[in-house]
Design a protein around this nucleic acid. Structure first.
Lengths: 329, 329
DNA sequence: TCATGGAATGTTAACGATCACAACAGCGAT
DNA sequence: ATCGCTGTTGTGATCGTTAACATTCCATGA
């Protein structure tokens, strides 16, 4: 930086002012400095800046280290959004979402003086880990606990599940079964609520809830059971992978989809269109979630305080394909 | 840090020594300092350390911002490995792998004074972007250009493809067709080479190469064609998603898998076991790739120089399921 | 005419760590 | 008794940047 200053014939402070787009710099010197910067190929040292300002241009993200489609998509969508606004993203994946792992990951980020923190914390156990956080750290939670009063962005699970269930009822099915995700995930709980609400509204019997774990394996396992029940004609699954497992189980038992059984999934994984048959499913808008998260986070960073309680929910959309039909009865 | 020093009754330098586990510190003062650190809840400032040492404990990763299973798995595997060794990971995703995007991402990382760089660069266009890199930056490429003389870790695509093709030939098929990935991906090219090699070795006719783009859609498209050719009895696809699309096309045309056509995929995505039928596929060991990458990178960081030309290839394994049978002829 | 103010720039001191070197103690060897 | 080693601790400078304050210059109005 001194070199640049010398070359431009000004002081280092003026260089700093040009860099930070300070107002009181004459156009003439601004150009000289810019030229010197370009000529020397100078780049400011972020570490030095972070040292003196006490903050960095890095956002820390805590996410589960899984290949689950939802969280993974969220993560990449957020990375992209952050980069577009000039923030670097520091990912601290955790293997499991228990309190200790999350606390550790958060502290690692704090060590690095991140400007803000995003936690993708779909399970209940994540809550307490965030409670002890210094209050002055900007924080946005994605798919976190709707009960906690922190800034939160979330996919509208209830609305998505409601739409899917209603779609099946509207097709004429007497009732709709549901294979859920793990019960400690907020996402899963929301989808169950939406499903129940739609059934209740329609004044229809609520079948017993089957529980999966997001995996195709769990869909297959539950499918073994559903395939044996002849009056099951419509199933809403908590995600597309469960639907895939279910599809295979039904297929093995000779029950045709959608002729005998209609299915709707959740997530719209890229392959869903090539399941046999192509899967009707609910698509969450991950990009919108990412954008909203970043927006709220930056607002907090700039205002210097965490405005707790702000909430943003993103409505998913139903994408129709070929796994839904009216019952043959 | 001064506070800690005062509380422990030593100088700031001694505190620093304790922090860095310097040898010449008496056990007694070490304990005093540790106690003071704990009491004050002190955490060293990484930015300050980075400023004076000129390096950080952060590894920059350049990866494509896609939901392709391979690259995404690689990324999370690497994050986990890095975290286990105390490195933070800064992800700079790029939307496309052209030269400019990569150069930009690399420079962003350089700004942040990363200790080392990992580039997941499966396509040819990434090469030139890395050529102009300062020579003193530790760099490991994953799935990069085998021709370039840089440190490289890669899945043994050729061996995997060879094994898959041979498996199909051994089952008695006259020849094996292949739907490849995009031709500018090194991964795809390697898989094509392995396929050709196995056919050549067996002294068997090499069918025309069909080209896909990793997507289920491209598998479906090519499947429309293959389904019409009655003498196609065995297909090796460049990944599992292509296989899924192919599966659906064959199904629509009434050709049974594996009775009429045998299929082997590549990647072993979690859902592959629940395709209809469960897919025989080649499983790359992403964790091993991640570990090897980190090892090489740390070696470079510690030695302070980039030992170019080191190469590590990880052998994949064939996982047998139900999509392969002997031809009925 | 001279204070007054604001715009442009420079000077100096932080920020929080490490590094190079100096200082001191204890101890055995000459 | 002196020298020199080794192990332990302290002192001051330094990394590259921004913040706070000082300075200069010129225009403005009483």
């Amino acid at each position: 930086m001194m070199d640049v200053a010398r070359l431009a014939g000004v002081s280092h402070q003026t260089v700093s002012r040009v860099l930070n787009e300070h107002k009181n710099v004459s156009e003439q010197t601004r150009l000289k400095v810019r030229a010197a910067i370009a000529e020397l190929g100078y780049r400011p040292d972020r570490a030095a800046r972070a040292l003196v300002t006490g903050t960095s241009q890095v956002i820390g993200v805590v996410a589960q280290n899984s290949s689950l489609y939802g969280p993974a998509s969220l993560l990449t969508a957020f990375e992209e959004a952050a980069q577009a606004t000039g923030f670097a993203v520091n990912v601290g994946s955790v293997r499991s979402l228990d309190e200790r792992s999350i606390t550790e990951a958060v502290e690692r980020h704090l060590d690095q003086r991140v400007a803000g923190l995003v936690v993708i914390a779909p399970v209940a156990s994540a809550g307490p880990a965030l409670a002890h956080l210094p209050a002055d750290v900007p924080l946005v939670t994605i798919d976190g606990d709707p009960e906690r009063s922190s800034t939160l962005v979330t996919v509208d699970q209830v609305a998505g599940a409601h739409a899917a269930t209603k779609r099946l009822l509207d097709a004429g099915h007497r009732t709709v079964w549901h294979i859920s995700g793990p019960s400690d995930w907020f996402d899963a709980a929301g989808r169950v609520r939406g499903w129940e609400a739609a059934l209740t509204e329609a004044g229809v019997e609520i079948p017993p809830l089957l529980t999966g774990d997001w995996s195709a394996a769990s869909g297959y396992r539950n499918g073994q059971l559903l395939a044996r029940l002849p009056d099951v004609t419509a199933v809403f699954t908590a995600n597309d992978h469960i639907a895939l497992g279910l599809l295979r189980a039904l297929n093995e038992h000779g029950r045709k989809v959608p002729d005998d059984v209609s299915i709707i999934g959740f997530d719209d994984v890229p392959e869903a269109a090539y399941f046999t048959p192509p899967l009707t499913t609910v698509r969450p808008d991950f990009a919108a979630v990412a954008t909203a998260t970043l927006e709220l986070l930056i607002a907090q960073i700039e205002s210097g305080m965490s405005e707790i309680g702000t909430r943003r929910t993103i409505a998913p959309s139903l994408v129709e394909r070929d796994s839904v039909a009216s019952p043959t009865t």
